[in-house]
Design a protein around this nucleic acid. Structure first.
Length: 347
DNA sequence: CATTCGTGAAGACGAAT
DNA sequence: ATTCGATTTCACGAATG
C-alpha cells in the first residue's frame, strides 16, 4: 500500500520556467486570444505576445524575456470549476517547491469523496470512502510534517550560511527518513537537524555539532542521536569530515573571539598566513596518519593554535577553544603531536 | 596576573565478545 | 547486551613568563 508514495522522484527540480512555456499554448489554440503589447521578434519579424510572464514570438516560438520566475498558481484554464485550487498557492521559496509539487496530487481524490453524498450501494461506497479517507489523512499528516521540517531546515541553513543545494540534499534525506517510517519516537526537529547536518557533511561544508546546537530548537545529544540513527538506517555512508574544511571559519572565529576580548593582549597579525600554515599542518598530519580516530574539529583547532605559534602570532588556547568549541585540554593534547609528526617539529 | 601544562575522574562512542 | 579501549571533557592545581 505504500506504493502511492511518489515521493521518490523529487529530484525533478529543474526550474518550472520551461514547462510553463510547454503547456501554455495548449489552452490557447489560436494565438490571438491573449493580448500583449506589440513587439516584433528579432529572429523572424513575427508578432510577440506576452503570456503568463513570458514574451513569446507567435510564429517561431522564441522566448524574448523569461527572467521572471513564475510564482503564480496554474489555474488559468480551470476557471469554470473553481474547486480546491487553493492548496496549490504555496509560498514561493525554492525548498518548499518540492512540498508544493507533492501536494498537488490531492485533486484526484475529490471526485470520489465529494461529488455525490449518497447513492444506492451505501456499503461499498462507505467502505471505499473510509479507506480513501484514511489514506488521505495519513498523507495529509505527512504533508504537514514535511512542511514544518523543510521550514526548519531552511531556517537553520540560513543561520549557518549553508548554500541552497545543501538544503535540497537535506530535504532529500528527510524525505527518505519519512518514507521509511523512521520517525516513530523521534521529533521532527531532531530529524530535520540531523538531515541538514548530514547534508552539510556530504557537501564538504560541515558545521560542528555545537554550531547546530545554537540554531536548533532541541538539545545537541537529541539530534546527534537522530543523526546517528538516520545515518545507520539510510546507509548514508558519510565520511568523516575533513579538518581543513573547518579552518577558514575557525580562523575567522578566533579573530572574532580576540576582538570581543579587549582585556587580553592576544593579536592576529596575518590571518591568511595563519590559515595556510594550519592547512599545511593538517595535510602533513593526514599524510602521517595521525588524524584517524581523532575528532576532525580537534585537529583543526589544534592546527590553528600550532600555526599561531609557528607564525609568532599571539593567540591563546582559550581563544581557540572559545572559537571552535574544542577544549584547551584537547587542543594541547593534539597540537604537540601535530608539530611532532610534521616537518615543523622545531618550534 | 595571564597563560600554559599536567592529572585523574567521568561521559560517549566504536569494536569486540 | 555488556565489556574494553581510545578520545574528549571537566575541574583543579602547578609551573612559567
Amino acid at each position: 500500500m505504500t506504493e502511492i508514495e511518489l515521493s521518490d522522484e523529487m529530484y525533478t527540480r529543474p526550474s518550472r520556467d520551461e514547462e510553463t512555456t510547454a503547456d501554455a499554448d495548449e489552452d490557447s489554440p489560436t494565438a490571438s486570444a491573449p493580448m500583449g503589447q506589440t513587439q516584433t521578434c528579432p529572429e523572424c519579424e513575427g508578432t510577440v505576445t506576452t503570456r503568463d510572464n513570458e514574451d513569446v514570438c507567435t510564429s517561431c516560438g522564441l522566448v524574448i524575456e523569461d527572467d521572471e520566475i513564475d510564482r503564480g498558481p496554474e489555474w488559468r484554464a480551470y476557471n469554470s470549476k473553481e474547486q480546491s485550487e487553493k492548496s496549490r498557492v504555496g509560498s514561493p521559496t525554492t525548498v518548499l517547491m518540492h512540498d508544493d509539487g507533492l501536494s498537488t496530487n490531492i485533486s484526484w481524490q475529490m471526485k470520489d469523496g465529494y461529488g455525490n453524498s449518497l447513492s444506492g450501494k451505501k456499503r461499498q461506497k462507505m467502505k471505499r470512502l473510509r479507506t480513501w479517507n484514511r489514506r488521505f489523512k495519513t498523507r495529509d499528516a505527512k504533508e504537514r510534517n514535511l512542511r514544518q521540517a523543510l521550514g526548519e531546515i531552511q531556517r537553520m541553513a540560513a543561520a549557518l550560511n549553508l548554500p541552497e543545494d545543501t538544503q535540497e540534499t537535506a530535504a532529500v534525506i528527510y524525505r527518505r527518513a519519512l518514507s521509511e517510517d523512521l520517525l516513530p519516537g523521534r521529533s521532527i526537529e531532531g530529524i530535520s537537524t540531523a538531515s541538514l547536518y548530514a547534508a552539510a557533511r556530504t557537501h564538504g561544508t560541515p558545521r560542528t555539532l555545537d554550531e547546530f546546537a545554537r540554531v536548533s530548537r532541541i538539545e545537541k545529544d537529541r539530534f546527534e542521536k537522530a543523526y546517528w540513527y538516520v545515518n545507520k538506517e539510510l546507509n548514508l555512508e558519510i565520511e568523516p569530515a575533513d579538518p581543513t574544511s573547518y579552518l577558514p571559519r575557525f580562523v575567522d572565529n578566533v579573530e572574532a573571539a580576540i576582538e570581543n576580548d579587549p582585556d587580553s593582549h592576544a593579536n592576529i597579525t596575518n590571518a591568511n598566513e595563519l590559515e595556510t600554515v594550519a592547512r599545511d599542518l593538517v595535510k602533513a598530519a593526514q599524510r602521517a596518519n595521525v588524524t584517524s580516530g581523532k575528532a576532525p574539529t580537534s585537529i583543526a583547532a589544534a592546527a590553528v593554535y600550532a600555526a599561531s605559534l609557528l607564525t609568532n602570532q599571539q593567540v591563546t588556547q582559550r581563544h581557540v577553544s572559545e572559537a571552535t568549541d574544542v577544549t584547551t585540554v584537547t587542543i594541547r593534547n593534539r597540537y604537540q603531536e601535530l608539530l611532532e609528526e610534521t616537518d615543523y617539529c622545531d618550534i
